[in-house]
Design a protein around this nucleic acid. Sequence first.
DNA 1: TGCCGCGCCGATAGGAGTATCGCCAACTCG
DNA 2: CGAGTTGGCGATACTCCTATCGGCGCGGCA
Lengths: 237, 237
Amino acid sequence: MGRSAMTFPAHGERPLSRKEGKAVTRTRLLDAALAILDDEGEAGLTTTSVTRRAGIAQSSFYVHFADMDDLVHALIDELTVRRLRQVREVRRQARTVPYDADALRATFRVPIQHAVEHPQIFRLLVRSRYDRSTALGEWSRAALEEDRRALVEDLHRAGMPRRTAAQRRRAAMVADGLAGLVEALVLGHLEGRYADVDEMIDVLMAFSTGYFPMLTDSPSAVEAIASAWKQLRASRR
Amino acid sequence: MGRSAMTFPAHGERPLSRKEGKAVTRTRLLDAALAILDDEGEAGLTTTSVTRRAGIAQSSFYVHFADMDDLVHALIDELTVRRLRQVREVRRQARTVPYDADALRATFRVPIQHAVEHPQIFRLLVRSRYDRSTALGEWSRAALEEDRRALVEDLHRAGMPRRTAAQRRRAAMVADGLAGLVEALVLGHLEGRYADVDEMIDVLMAFSTGYFPMLTDSPSAVEAIASAWKQLRASRR
DNA sequence: TGCCGCGCCGATAGGAGTATCGCCAACTCG
DNA sequence: CGAGTTGGCGATACTCCTATCGGCGCGGCA
């Protein structure tokens, strides 16, 4: 065997070409970076730690990336591509079926499944929004803002009024609230507290009935909330 | 003036005693640490950056703390004391009045006000939960778990059934959901999207009506959700 | 009033990380 | 088949951070 300490993953019969080998190493560096961000946060992300986890020498880092910023931007590009695929599926789900219980359940299920399948990406997204001075922080805030904007459009399309600034702000709050609900339960799942995704969606559906009255700009919105309280009081006698 | 580069804040007429001066410096170091965690995250937290922001020499750090871990634990102790005061107020609010609309609004308002008054602490709490390998991560997860446990107790006391593991899990999901709702809207406020706390609480109240049927372990819980859908469909014809 | 304690300081040694340099071996292509 | 390319490597210079050392000046106390 040559000088290299690298061991490639199983790759069929023939050895990798130079280009293929380089691409594999680059992918290992990106995967290593994502894993370290998940395990140790930005403080642990160094060329030394990334290359060690990727299984190459520290100086080999600079064959693939100009510096650490370059790696982080490459990671962001890759995460953005993956999220665009996910968001496209969520958008399709939200658009192609009428607004009923099954449709709403499906619009909850898609992001939950993505988060469950890619927990490192999910955690990086939700934790990075607090980073003030990093490219990851900017990426996360932009992604979450785009999610909110799209969800607000869904709510308006479903009937939530949008004529005044207060109405649009109300819709944005509902969108933020829905995202906060999903995030909280997904974290519960990832932290091992809730195993059953359908049970999670049941609770999300229950919370969601709370904003239904807002889907019509009518007195019934106020009446529905009053009615909910009345029913609660009645059921407790 | 003596050798020290320090400038004390205004402190009435008389100069500080030695003990007072030492306490002031220690407080400046803790405040500087919290500010740096907020601005730059754990990666920016070094003895050099903390002492520079506190306005003392780097080597003076070791007069007050054994090392950086010592400072972080001292910060955690201080944040824990402050949160105990806050949690006590929330507990009092949740206990001393009957379960009605005004009481529920108040139980939302207290944590929102604390977060709005202490945004750095709020952001540190919610961001640190993702830290796997830090004392701040452990502190945050413990604090949020305690919040969830107390909120679950509130829900059970308000009537949510607790006989089976599924019922307790359902209550925990509702508690997590409520926390997720509050956090999402508080972040919206801190990020400048929502200025009016009462408007935020209106939306929280609306979402909350969604879990009301769960407060009784009766067929009406299922009927209420079905009724909500029926009302939605009726209002859209 | 004088000595001691101590909070602050600058200088510094050692460690960790970044980025570069020069070399090697193997792949690629004409 | 041979020259050129290049991905990987070890060594290293430089920077930044941690932690210690010794000194200074001033507050505190007997």
